[in-house]
């Protein structure tokens, strides 16, 4: 059975206390390489949120009505990744048709998302923790927003860091990681308010 958690609590918890990036280390790869630029960070954050919500709904339905009844749970990794890749592909085509302006802004980020661990991670968490459909939607939306918030905050900090005197060996990824560490500590400060795990 699904755990008895209010979806709203889940939503806020996945933004703040158990942020997908800062507490679960998911979606780091694109995070570190993109976060240098505020505009791209914003675009990627939006794209991740949209794809997360769409794919987690699809994956939930497939899991519940196809994989579990047919006892094919061991195929879930392949199925999830195919669903994610296909969703990204379709979304790319739809956006291209409907709004070329949005496509220009978002287009280059979409292929990156297929290999973003956060998307697959949310699908797997939702399966392991047995969330209901509503809980899954709120959890996915919260995780996406949390990721978006984290990447925006980091890119703003990075901008300031450009002017800071950083030792030669620490420049680049080193200082970025330590900054993420401080952000993670700040986010842990929220954990007194809500906790869901």
């Amino acid at each position: 059975m699904s755990p008895d958690i209010n979806p709203l609590v889940l939503f806020f918890a996945s933004i703040f206390t158990s942020n997908i990036l800062l507490a679960n280390f998911l979606g780091m790869c694109s995070f570190i390489s993109i976060s240098k630029d505020m505009k791209s960070s914003n675009g990627l954050g939006l794209a991740v949120t949209v794809v997360l919500v769409l794919t987690s709904m699809l994956n939930w339905v497939i899991l519940k009505y196809i994989l579990i009844p047919l006892d094919l749970l061991y195929l879930r990794y392949i199925i999830f990744i195919i669903v994610i890749a296909a969703t990204v592909q379709v979304l790319e085509m739809v956006i291209d048709r409907v709004s070329p302006a949005l496509y220009m802004a978002l287009g280059i980020f979409l292929p990156l998302i297929t290999v973003n661990c956060a998307i697959l991670g949310v699908a797997l968490f939702m399966q392991i923790r047995n969330y209901s459909f509503i809980q899954t939607v709120f959890f996915a939306a919260g995780s996406g927003l949390g990721w978006w918030l984290a990447i925006l905050a980091l890119s703003a900090i990075q901008k300031k860091l450009l002017k800071a005197p950083v030792p030669a060996g620490l420049k680049g990824p080193g200082i970025t990681l330590i900054t993420i560490g401080f952000m993670a500590m700040a986010f842990i400060g929220f954990s007194g308010m809500l906790s869901v795990q």
């Binding site: 800062l22 507490a23 679960n24 280390f25 620490l170 990824p173 080193g174 200082i175 970025t176 990681l177 330590i178 993420i180 560490g181 401080f182 993670a184 500590m185 842990i188």
Partner: peptide, 10 residues
Amino acid sequence: MAPSAFFLLG
């Protein structure tokens, strides 16, 4: 907790 992993890797 999570932050230490970032600090150590950094």
